[in-house]
């Protein structure tokens, strides 16, 4: 009687035939509504942060405290705005191309935690939140963004069955 079992070479040949089809399907993985909402929320947070920075930097927004414009704080704000921009560009590209999204979220989360700790250590004695109403909203809402970023990474589906590749 003939052996009906297929060997590894034949399995590989079959997989190769359907490789293109699997690749196309991988690009159309439907993400959950929660994921989309969280991605929008995080992007909105960063965009508003950048807009306020550019407005303050260009003197288009009234700063309650003049030191905000002249002091070291603006240097820090400038650096953070640049890093945030590139980081979220990376996150959006990773989500679009379905490549390394969870790693990008982890990097963003670590970066934001580090900046928060740095800010608390360096500026806690120098800054009153009342003097900087535009920034206070970001400082106060930051824990929410941490949760949103972690949730974003966990709710991301990079395969059809939801398992990590």
């Amino acid at each position: 009687m003939a052996d009906k079992k297929i060997n590894t070479t034949e399995i590989n040949a079959i997989l190769e035939v359907f490789a293109e089809s699997r690749e196309i399907k991988a690009n159309i993985i439907k993400q959950s509504k929660t994921f989309k909402a969280l991605l929008l929320l995080c992007n909105a947070y960063v965009v508003v942060f950048l807009v306020i920075y550019y407005f303050l930097n260009s003197n288009l927004l009234y700063a309650v405290d003049a030191d905000l414009i002249n002091g070291d704080f603006l240097t820090v704000f400038n650096g953070r705005a640049n890093v945030m921009f590139w980081l979220f560009l990376g996150i959006n590209m990773a989500a679009y191309f379905n490549l390394g999204f969870k790693v990008m979220c982890l990097i963003a989360l670590v970066f934001m935690l580090n900046t928060t700790v740095d800010n608390v250590i360096i500026f806690s004695e120098l800054i009153s939140l009342d003097d900087r109403p535009y920034l206070t909203i970001f400082i106060v809402s930051r824990p929410l963004v941490f949760v949103a970023l972690a949730w974003l990474a966990l709710s991301f589906k990079d395969t059809f069955d939801g398992n990590e590749r």
């Binding site: 240097t75 820090v76 982890l106 580090n114 740095d118 360096i122």
Partner: peptide, 17 residues
């Protein structure tokens, strides 16, 4: 990521402080 973040922070953000 943390080591790179503090390196970038030191040279790009906190260099005046």
């Amino acid at each position: 990521a943390w080591a790179i973040a503090i390196y970038i922070d030191d040279y790009l953000v906190l260099y005046q402080i």
